[in-house]
């Protein structure tokens, strides 16, 4: 408590022009790099009117791209939700050898370029790769098909949930869980009744970020996609194709779907952040 009051005193002692300058600079910067491009996306998308906009979004290849993007998110987000909770639980609540290594590994997708993440799968599952010939002999398709796209997306999005939960769970410590166990709760009951309610907002925050990235990922997915129209193009890849076909209005129309998603994400994120502050 003393920390916050000290901080508020300090901000009040800051001279007014400095405060205003900082605020204006921050807003100008965001306006220039965030708001103007976003507005441009919607302006370009509606350049040829609402009818053209709707046609572009309802076109079969666009619908296929939307569907594929939703499938990819619907698989990779739950997978990373479970993985993230497990990993965060292990790291925050137990001591074990190799804990640092595990944390480093979780961060790996953040430090590796998405293109490399995609190439890893081509090298593994490609026809010339380690498992390629075996997969083909058994008629299993991984890359240049939906499974490869999902795998690449899972890879690039797996730090989000875990990274969000680890500091939160570490800060909460294990006192409440130990109390629950002492009072006779089973492991599962402890997890469900004690841990989950404590972390739910952080968890939701992680899921939102994870979902946003899963739907927007370009690099890794581009490498494993094969770019088959109406089959292996996600929304970002479809946008690139339309743009390359001089179909600028349609490209921006489809891009505006992603931008809308980003806006929704932003609103939900602010709400979750607000709830997190309220509950803590």
């Amino acid at each position: 408590m003393s920390g916050t009051s000290a901080k508020s005193v300090r901000t009040r002692t800051e001279p007014a022009p400095v405060r205003w300058l900082l605020i204006i600079v921050a807003f100008l910067f965001l306006g220039l790099f965030l708001f103007v491009p976003l507005a441009a996306v919607f302006a370009q998308a509606l350049e040829k009117g609402w009818d053209a906009y709707l046609v572009a979004i309802r076109e079969p290849d666009a619908l296929a791209a939307v569907k594929l993007t939703l499938i990819t998110a619907a698989v990779s987000v739950p997978v990373n939700l479970v993985f993230g909770v497990v990993a965060a639980w292990a790291i925050a609540k137990f001591e074990f050898r190799g804990k640092q290594l595990l944390i480093t590994l979780i961060d790996l997708p953040f430090s590796v370029s998405p293109v490399i993440s995609g190439l890893i799968y081509v090298l593994l599952f490609g026809l010339q790769g380690w498992l390629g010939p075996w997969l083909q002999a058994h008629d299993i398709k991984i890359i240049f098909a939906v499974p490869g796209i999902v795998l690449a997306t899972v890879f690039v999005t797996f730090p989000f949930v875990a990274r969000e939960l680890i500091p939160l769970m570490e800060a909460q410590g294990k006192d409440e869980e130990e109390a629950a166990i002492t009072l006779g709760a089973s492991g599962f009951q402890t997890f469900w009744r004690v841990t989950i309610p404590n972390i739910k907002w952080g968890l939701l925050y992680g899921v939102i970020l994870c979902n946003a990235r899963a739907m927007g990922e370009f690099g890794a997915v581009s490498v494993v996609s094969g770019h088959i129209r109406g089959a292996t193009n996600t929304i970002p890849l479809h946008v690139e194709i339309l743009y390359n076909e001089y179909n600028y209005a349609a490209a921006f129309a489809v891009a505006s779907l992603l931008a809308l998603l980003a806006l929704v994400t932003l609103v939900v994120k602010s709400f979750v952040e607000w709830r997190m502050r309220e509950t803590s």
């Binding site: 026809l127 010339q128 240049f144 770019h227 088959i228 129209r229 194709i241």
Partner: peptide, 20 residues
């Protein structure tokens, strides 16, 4: 008929890597 387009060398590479 489904289509996939890209730089010619890159496309050949994808077929070599198993694009059907």
């Amino acid at each position: 008929v489904k289509q996939s387009h890209g730089g010619s060398g890159k496309q050949a590479r994808a077929v070599i890597d198993g694009l059907d």
